[in-house]
């Protein structure tokens, strides 16, 4: 039985003056200090009685240069760690070049929650149900991380290690995420199935991305990322490269997604249902992407 507290348990709020100070503090207190951005995951976990050893919450969102979204036609998009989900949803550059990211961010919780929730927080929290993990993975996101040794780049590939577990080490602070330019003509789509029409966590989430590719027989390449059907996002790359691209081929690719995942039963849904939904929603998402590719403009 989960016994939630009426309020938040004791901790000290710490607001370092610099990244160096923050990383040092976190590294020196590996068990008891945690960084946070919006805190939407952090506070809820603490209140629910998890992370009992936490003594310090380290606010890392007010350090310089974390609150911006920048786009550069050569290097792609950079989203600062303190950028909240609503900013991601509304940003003209994101909408123009990475609409899939805006679509996925929009599906997180509610407007007021998205004022606090950050993209970086969603990634570092590493929940299998995280809505933006798929889009960030398929766009080849690379985290900029500041650790005790200074800055480094941390690709998202290999970043997720289990529910709530990532490649980050004590002292590591993600400061931004960069997405290289998408392959020209890319089209993405996110299908989320919750119990309610909106605002619920995903029972199943399917992110699909497709783009033209002259090296394949089909002239295209498709990728899928599946949420809530394994401890980490399930990725299927390079689908539908064979010709011809028929509805049957899309069905078959959706079937592969179904085979590739190994969900569990939980309060939100059974493994059996989830498997069916991975197939059906993958089919739906792939079709939407395919329609978008044919019509020549990126759909949401």
């Amino acid at each position: 039985m989960r016994e939630a507290h009426p309020g938040l348990p004791d901790f000290d709020y710490v607001r370092p003056a610099s990244l160096e100070e923050a990383s040092r503090f976190l590294a020196e207190n590996p068990q008891s200090a945690r960084p946070f951005m919006g805190g939407t995951d952090t506070f809820v976990r603490l209140r629910d009685g998890f992370w009992k050893e936490t003594r310090y919450l380290v606010d890392v969102k007010n350090l310089d240069g974390r609150a911006e979204i920048t786009f550069d036609p050569r290097n792609g998009l950079t989203v600062g760690a303190a950028v909240n989900m609503n900013q991601v949803v509304a940003d003209p550059q994101v909408r123009a070049h990475y609409p899939l990211l805006a679509q996925a961010a929009h599906r997180v919780a509610s407007y007021q929650l998205r004022t606090r929730a950050t993209l970086i927080g969603n990634l570092c929290n590493a929940s299998p149900a995280g809505d933006t993990l798929g889009a960030c993975l398929l766009f080849g996101g690379i985290l900029r991380v500041h650790g005790v040794e200074g800055f480094r780049d941390q690709p998202l590939a290999g970043f997720f290690q289990g529910p709530g577990r990532t490649a980050l080490q004590p002292g590591d602070i993600a400061t931004s995420i960069r997405f290289p330019l998408p392959v020209p003509g890319s089209v993405g789509h996110y299908e989320k199935l919750g119990r309610n029409v909106l605002s619920d966590l995903a029972i199943v989430g399917v992110t699909a991305l497709g783009h033209p590719d002259s090296s394949t027989a089909s002239g295209h390449r498709f990728h899928l990322a599946l949420a809530s059907v394994g401890p980490v996002p399930v990725i299927l790359r390079d689908l539908l490269t064979q010709a011809p691209l028929t509805p049957e081929a899309l069905d078959e690719a959706a079937g592969r997604a179904m085979e590739a995942c190994h969900p569990i039963d939980d309060v939100r849904g059974s493994a059996r249902y989830r498997k069916f939904m991975v197939r059906n929603l993958s089919r739906r998402a792939l079709n939407r992407v395919w329609e978008g590719l044919q019509s020549g403009h990126c759909c949401e």
Binding site: M1, L198, D200
Partner: peptide, 18 residues
Amino acid sequence: GVVRNPSFVDYRIATSAD
């Protein structure tokens, strides 16, 4: 005898979208 969904996270009620 244990309630497995004692919160809004997993006891869903209709929202404005439903």
